[in-house]
Nucleic acid binder design. Structure first.
Lengths: 209, 209
DNA sequence: CCCCCTTAGTGAAAATTATAACATATCCTG
DNA sequence: CAGGATATGTTATAATTTTCACTAAGGGGG
């Protein structure tokens, strides 16, 4: 297990493998080969093996991988052997939808609260989740040991929100606002830009004609 | 303008540059250097210039780029000099939120309709957008020349939906279902896996301690 | 009008990432 | 128990992408 730098693409794929393995588990499939994993995720078998090799040896030559065991290893690699507390800032359409997103819950992400500055929204409940005033976020994050914050506010508020949640002790930010944000060295940030994804599609469509 | 293969990372960055330039336009900034673009998007100036160089020469040496003109070029490169009609399949939380997402409208993506198989949801309106039965999607796509479909249904329905919309004539798919989907050669697909993004954060957080 | 400062464009070098090929280990069959 | 079939782990190779350094070109001041 060398701690050399791991390509981000590898982490993305591990996450995808993991979900696929979960599916196999549900279907009571106990063993799988790298070739079949590759088939299941539209990848290559060499890549599957290479990705796993960064972290150890999880398979058996001539046999394949034990589905459950491999998934368990990957989950641990990804830091998913524990639950994570999450807050969402921005209780608009997107924030609300994210708060209900099953895909988070399934992977151990628990949205404990939402925050907004709109008096209209504060106090409301989205499903089980209450919307608190943004002024209370620091206290909330500290009390509930929240490490992850999702930002789903308009772009021009986003940097301001970052400052607040970083101060509150958040260690990772998933940002849906289409703007580059500055964070301190010790805070992880990841941008999910929905329009960018659309635009990659249009670019490719235009190429092909 | 060489038509060599363009890195996808370049396209992503172009999209980001474009949004940043838009912002500059709004602030009445007329000229900008690659260094300042880089600063605005947390990138490097060499990368900015390299990315643009794939498509032509848009700047003036010793001066920089004309903001408006450069953005106009990038928009055209990305295929955004025209509007795109979009349908969303899945009128749940996520689909509904996406239908209202301002970031799409701003970039010329018009959501014309949503589709679902739940009688509860069919006929309802989310904002201006009506939810139609999935059975009508083919006709709708043909009549409205829809080229892009957003998939926001549970994972186990997603492949089925793909088959339907591809048959209907859709050329690009933005998939939010956490599952690898098969599409014909001529159809572009892009997966936005929200949990994956969370998991990259947790992975990195675990590395750093 | 010339010189200096600035900044785009570009080609080569470096770093990264993916692919392919192979050596090693396990199982199964006869 | 031996040998073939299978599939991992690993090393080497190729491809891609980024970074760096340099050249070329425009603008402004003296």
């Amino acid at each position: 297990m060398k701690s050399h730098k791991i390509p981000e693409a590898t982490i993305i794929r591990l996450s995808v493998y993991s979900r696929y393995l979960k599916q196999l588990e549900i279907n009571n499939i106990t063993t799988i080969s790298s070739v079949d994993i590759a088939r299941g995720v539209n990848g290559s078998s060499a890549q599957v093996r290479k990705d796993l090799a960064y972290f150890g040896e999880f398979g058996m030559r001539g046999v394949g991988y034990n589905v459950k065991e491999l998934n368990s290893h990957i989950m641990k690699i990804l830091g998913l052997n524990t639950n994570w507390n999450v807050v969402i800032v921005g209780a608009g359409n997107l924030g609300s939808a994210l708060s209900q997103y099953k895909g988070f819950q399934e992977r151990g992400f628990r949205v404990l609260g939402m925050f907004d500055n709109d008096p209209e929204k504060i106090g409301r409940r989205i499903g089980e989740i209450e919307v608190y005033p943004i002024s209370q976020i620091k206290e909330f994050v500290e009390i509930n040991t929240v490490r992850i914050c999702v930002i789903a506010v308009p772009a021009h508020y986003a940097q301001e929100v970052v400052a607040g949640v970083v101060d509150a002790g958040v260690k990772a930010i998933l940002n849906f606002a289409p703007r580059a944000l500055s964070v301190p060295e010790h805070v992880e940030i990841r941008n999910v830009d929905l329009a960018v994804n659309m635009e990659i599609l249009t670019f490719n469509m235009c190429l092909n004609k």
